[in-house]
């Protein structure tokens, strides 16, 4: 579901206003807000997982086998004639796009009609939480075998939620190499940020339009292709991550969201086509923003942790100087925006 919605967003020509994606009390058109709320349900799944909220895709049953035995909560009269198998492949693929990896694979043992269908499915939705107590080596084997059994069909969307799985890097690369327009990767929030090693993960892609990364470590090397080798990239969301990235300069990027990320070095945002920019709760420092000529909407939210980090207490004086500069750096780059929301904590 997440994948489909993300893809719909990518495919939809009218861009939604990212301001509306927050719980803002704005008096914006309610209909639009409703529509965006639908998107939000899908796209902000990292947060919803963190909050343990069920979004329909995150099956949290402890035992996957047990889970499947229990059946879904929907009860209905059983069909006497098989009609679903007569649906055209295209419709079956769309239905399959809503299925998590395990259930997708299991459609292959329904009947001869279904046996190889899943191997051409263009959506992959792999979530470690679906695997209950098999989340270790068996999860790894499952995903590796599944990817090997897929035919060479290109992907539309690839979503992976993993927890301390070393192979995750190569799976992301699989998703990207197979032409996914939408790639969403999140490492379980309970785990350490997943290190995206540039020797394993290569973001180079002519197709990638929408990239969401959550709870990862990104350095300059792995980020380089995002700036220079993703000519179709329009949306980039970085959540709960550690960034050692000097610059976000992608020429095609329209929408950038950086939420709750640790900036371990100065970050300059200079993507010239940016239409919307949202930076929430940056840690250690705030990014610097070059004047962005196309910018329409900017949201910058600095919260308490921004300057009350105990580690930084000794550097209070320095921090104070930086504070001034940072504000200047942010606001200076936003001069072209039509709408700016800037929220900063009150200084004690």
């Amino acid at each position: 579901y997440v994948l489909r919605i993300a893809l719909q967003m990518v495919n939809s020509k009218s861009r939604t206003n990212p301001l509306l994606r927050q719980e803002s009390n704005s008096t914006a058109n309610v209909q639009q807000q409703h529509r965006v709320a639908g998107h939000k349900n899908g796209l902000v799944m990292m947060q919803s997982q963190r909050n343990q909220a069920s979004d329909g895709m995150v099956l949290t049953k402890d035992d996957a086998g047990q889970m499947l035995d229990q059946g879904s909560s929907i009860n209905m009269r059983h069909a006497s004639i098989d009609r679903i198998s007569n649906l055209p492949n295209d419709l079956l693929y769309i239905i399959m796009s809503f299925l998590p990896a395990l259930e997708l694979v299991l459609t292959g043992i329904l009947s001869t009609r279904w046996r190889r269908l899943w191997t051409s499915s263009t959506y992959l939705n792999i979530d470690v939480n679906q695997f209950g107590r098999y989340r270790g080596q068996k999860f790894c084997n499952f995903v590796n075998r599944m990817l090997r059994q897929r035919d060479s069909s290109s992907l539309d969307a690839f979503r992976l939620h993993s927890a301390d799985t070393r192979d995750a890097g190569s799976w992301i690369t699989y998703g990207i190499r197979h032409g996914s327009k939408v790639v969403l990767f999140s490492e379980d929030i309970e785990r350490e940020p997943f290190n995206l090693d540039h020797g394993v993960v290569d973001f180079t892609s002519r197709c990638l339009k929408y990239l969401v990364l959550a709870n990862v470590c990104l350095d300059a090397n792995v980020f380089y292709p995002i700036n220079f080798a993703c000519p179709a990239l329009e949306n980039l969301e970085l959540n709960d991550s550690s960034l050692e990235v000097p610059e976000i300069s992608s020429g095609s990027l329209l929408h950038l969201d950086i939420d709750n990320c640790c900036l371990f070095e100065d970050l300059l945002i200079s993507s010239p086509s940016l239409v919307s920019l949202c930076i929430k709760s940056p840690q250690h420092r705030a990014p610097m923003i070059l004047t962005l000529p196309c910018l329409e909407v900017a949201t910058i939210i600095l919260d308490e942790c921004f300057h009350s980090t105990e580690d930084l207490e000794d550097m209070d004086e320095v921090a104070e100087q930086e504070w001034g500069e940072i504000q200047h750096g942010i606001v200076g780059g936003l001069t072209k925006a039509r709408s700016i929301e800037l929220i900063a904590p009150r200084r004690e």
Binding site: M67, D69, G71, I74, I94, I95, F98, P100, E103
Partner: peptide, 13 residues
């Protein structure tokens, strides 16, 4: 489509 997928989800083959 969503309804069909919901019917498949969480069930054994």
């Amino acid at each position: 489509v969503q309804r069909t997928a919901d019917l498949i989800k969480g069930k054994t083959p």
